[in-house]
Design a protein around this nucleic acid. Structure first.
Lengths: 140, 140
DNA sequence: ATACCTGCAAAAGCTTTGCACCTAC
DNA sequence: GTAGGTGCAAAGCTTTTGCAGGTAT
């Protein structure tokens, strides 16, 4: 079984810093496109491809958390200091999220991997719903 | 809050039966494209769009379970008789899967929804890895 | 100087949709 | 006879990639 290659060397850059800085000040999970759009709106010079490439780097380095929405779109969120891996309940409409603590999920995934002899085990648990704010807006 | 509209009336058809029949005899989670390809290989007359449309129907009716792979692709599997909703550990390479029983996840999702006042709460928990068979093939 | 970073546009994948025709009920 | 099903090709979307030029080290 080949050991996972360590990430390529990454370089600092304006765009990269801009993205990290932006994500640190943001709560919800956002799509690459949304992030690009919001950065442009803030006056950043930034190509879409760069956003994709940098987000890929940042996920690889563990700076950013990535999930897949029910529609198959990748969503990103800064997840640096507040501990390691955890899960969220996420609004399908606005992307607002709250962290969910649950150690049992981690254990369960590991146990299942061993029991069925799976290697390179990862897991994803995401809870999606519609937050109170968005619910109200919908009723109108 | 509008009540969820009941599914449209569905009609029996050769293609639909073919798909159900095929999925019932299959273990792993498969993509729409894979299912289409395998049905064609078995001599079925079947368009790709039909596979997409029927899988959509079947998921809506609860005949088929759908998940999203780490790459964002939708995967399907027959999930009719063996109880209701449950989770799986899935091979990233061949799609083989084993069911995982865990009631706590269900409770947790529900609790989190109530606590944070989210409506229309759903959740997804999937464990991905590489199964023993595929591990061996890789090493060669 | 070299290796990585960027932007743009093109290309790739998966999925959905418009339309004309077919089929179950 | 009518509403739903089907195939094909076109279109939609998100994401990736090729390439020429820019930038950090």
């Amino acid at each position: 079984v080949p050991a996972p290659a360590q990430p390529k060397k990454k370089r600092n850059s304006r765009r990269r810093e801009r993205i990290v800085e932006f994500l640190q000040g943001i709560d919800p999970f956002l799509s690459s496109q949304a992030i690009h759009q919001m950065l442009k709106a803030r006056g950043a010079s930034m190509g879409l491809a760069t956003v994709y490439r940098q987000l890929e780097n940042l996920v690889e380095e563990g700076e950013v958390d990535s999930i897949i929405s029910p529609s198959g779109e990748k969503l990103f969120r800064h997840c640096g200091s507040d501990g390691g891996h955890h899960h969220h309940i996420i609004c399908k409409i606005c992307g607002a999220s709250q962290a969910i603590e649950d150690e049992e999920v981690e254990e369960m995934a590991e146990t299942a991997g061993k029991r069925y002899k799976y290697s390179e085990v990862s897991h994803s648990l995401e809870i999606f719903g519609i937050c109170e704010t968005c619910s109200r807006k919908r009723v109108r």
